[in-house]
Design a protein around this nucleic acid. Structure first.
Length: 253
DNA sequence: CTCTATGTTTAATT
DNA sequence: GAATTAAACATAGA
């Protein structure tokens, strides 16, 4: 279930399992998911970073990038644990005499794991991350002013808002009371501020493991704010739920 | 069987 | 060239 908050939780878990540990064994079962060889035995993990939905494992020599796609997930097991259902790769490590086996499971196989010596293109292309840099409102306002499409499409653009996925975009727009179909260029600075606050609020809630999905997937049910039936539509090719009454095309309408 | 799906990339189109 | 959109990717679950 990977958008920014889930990937951040994955990063913290990986850091717990891997930081300071030395890789003793690797295995990969899927050339589409695991690109290239995982020739990593003997390397030590310095730290685990994240930008947007990408994870970046820093080794004493080299890097490993990981993207969870739609259904990817990491977990730590005892080394003798047999291959899990949908397991695509494993990295076993030792630290203080104790071995841990980190497994990557991904039924739908949209995820990626790739070892590299330097930053890969998809990582370099990522824009500012909500947790790392936050939102520079003046900058984002300039970028949005040049765009034609709906604000929801801009939210999903990883060069502008690294880490925002369909549900996050949907919920932030709901909280900020902005119609997802509104043109990016039509947003006022007040809208943008509301949107930034909503994004932070939703991410914060998700990181605390609270329930944070109030609109997405609830089409046809009453809006939690005004009781109007939530509507379903497609924006930027993605499922969208919104309240036709409180998410307006322009502020103060 | 049909439909949908929290993601990205690429080709086609504007 | 830039931005946008639709299709493709692969598979599970309702």
């Amino acid at each position: 279930m990977p958008e920014l908050p889930e990937v951040e939780l994955a990063r913290r878990a990986l850091r717990r399992w891997m930081r300071g540990a030395t890789i003793v064994r690797t295995a990969a079962w899927d050339r589409a998911v695991v690109r290239g060889a995982l020739a990593l035995v003997g390397r030590t993990v310095r730290d685990v970073g994240r930008r947007g939905k990408w994870l970046r494992v820093e080794l004493d020599r080299g890097l490993v990038f990981a993207h969870l796609g739609m259904t990817g997930d990491f977990s730590a097991r005892a080394p003798e644990t047999p291959r899990l259902r949908w397991e695509r790769a494993r990295i076993d490590l030792t630290r203080g005499g104790k071995e841990t086996s980190v497994r990557y499971v991904d039924p739908r196989r949209f995820g990626r794991i790739v070892a590299a010596r330097e930053d890969i293109a998809p990582w370099r292309k990522l824009g500012p991350d909500l947790l790392l840099e936050g939102i520079d409102e003046a900058h984002v306002a300039r970028v949005l002013a040049k765009r034609r499409g709906p604000i929801k499409a801009a939210l999903l653009d990883q060069r502008i808002f690294a880490g925002v996925g369909n549900i996050l975009a949907n919920e932030a727009l709901f909280r900020a009371r902005i119609d997802p179909r509104r043109p990016s260029r039509a947003l006022s600075l007040a809208d943008l501020r509301a949107l930034a606050r909503a994004l932070h609020a939703v991410i914060g809630k998700a990181l605390r493991n609270g329930s944070w999905i109030r609109a997405y997937g609830h089409a046809g049910e009453p809006c939690p704010r005004c009781d109007t039936r939530l509507a379903h539509t497609i924006v930027a090719g993605r499922t969208t739920t919104f309240c036709p009454r409180c998410q307006r095309r322009s502020r103060g309408e």
